[in-house]
Design a protein around this nucleic acid. Sequence first.
DNA 1: CATTACCAAGCAAGCGCTAGGTTTGTAAAG
DNA 2: CTTTACAAACCTAGCGCTTGCTTGGTAATG
Lengths: 204, 204
Amino acid sequence: MAANTKQSARLANGMEDTPRGRLLAAAAHLFRVKGFERTTVRDLAQEVGIQSGSIFHHFRTKEEILRCVMEEVIHLNTDRLRGSMDGATSPQEKLLRLIKAELNSIVGDTGEAMAVLIFEWRCLKEDSQKYLLELRNHYERIWLNVLEEAKQQGLLAPDRDVVVLRRLLGGALAWTNYWYKTEGKMDIEQLAQQSLYMVFGDGQ
Amino acid sequence: MAANTKQSARLANGMEDTPRGRLLAAAAHLFRVKGFERTTVRDLAQEVGIQSGSIFHHFRTKEEILRCVMEEVIHLNTDRLRGSMDGATSPQEKLLRLIKAELNSIVGDTGEAMAVLIFEWRCLKEDSQKYLLELRNHYERIWLNVLEEAKQQGLLAPDRDVVVLRRLLGGALAWTNYWYKTEGKMDIEQLAQQSLYMVFGDGQ
DNA sequence: CATTACCAAGCAAGCGCTAGGTTTGTAAAG
DNA sequence: CTTTACAAACCTAGCGCTTGCTTGGTAATG
């Protein structure tokens, strides 16, 4: 249940070049390690080497920083998820690609921001939640399309609910943020294979 | 990603009879809805109808309240998990019972405290984390014993890692706290069945 | 007459955020 | 080249408020 030992705080390539980007990257890291509430604007300022008041030249409120971190990571990973399926034809192949992509989002370079997205959700104002929920729905739609395709081809038991399946699988993958260590024995490839068992079982 | 519409804040039977128990039940509820940091001792006092200072007659610090909530829910649910297997013989039957028991913990009367256990973990001091982690290990041991039994009987593919399986399954079940609604179409029984697919697949 | 449960009042520290001034980088105008 | 202009980035200082928690006392129970 401890934080992963090493995860880059990067949200997107080249993001650290702009002051705003450096703040977002540092925020993703601190929000992950300490939580949004326990992270003060003074903590964040110290992390990037400026004074606390200077933050509000770039963001209007502390909550806006959180919202931007989440927005960036959803956009980035939605693009990655779409791109991961390029060239895949069978539902099995597509699903394995999706699982690998989501695992990389969660345990890879965007892992901290993904954890923030999950655990600091309640710290957002209601309208921010509404806006981000819409972005998340686009992400989930990609998954559901593939799972429905698999079911139509008879790859899943008839009484299996694809929406529930996606939610169970999503939970299983999100949870890896808690325990999976990149430097351990098992690599992402193997973990993805173990995860795929949860969809198709042994007789894939 | 919204909170469940209705979950009792009860942690254990008869707990609300003592002032301390009433505080813990209210704390579990508020910590779940607002988060530990955003819940003030004044919020908590108002919920049980006393003054904020009076809280510290029952608990030394706010963090101690959180630790007690978590400790209670782990103890209670470890007992429930053990008891759920009474009379079950086959690994399949045992696993279905375990899944049902854990689902009931998560979406039932201890749901709020379980969510607190998951999401407010970082708010604990290090020694509290260490202590509670030990209690959690006892809980996880029950699961692993059954999964290892299933594997020894050849019910799982040879290359399947039972520790990883438990973690994936645990994540899937924990996640239900986010989305499952008791008053929806699907009941716990059906949800447990869908979850069991993740262990044994279609050809159970 | 000790124990338990509580209240009333408030302290010291920390919080997000603001106001007003200073530095720095860039580029057109002279 | 130098000067002028200007915006972006940042600093200094601190305001107003909330926070967890303390203190010293009261009321009821057995």
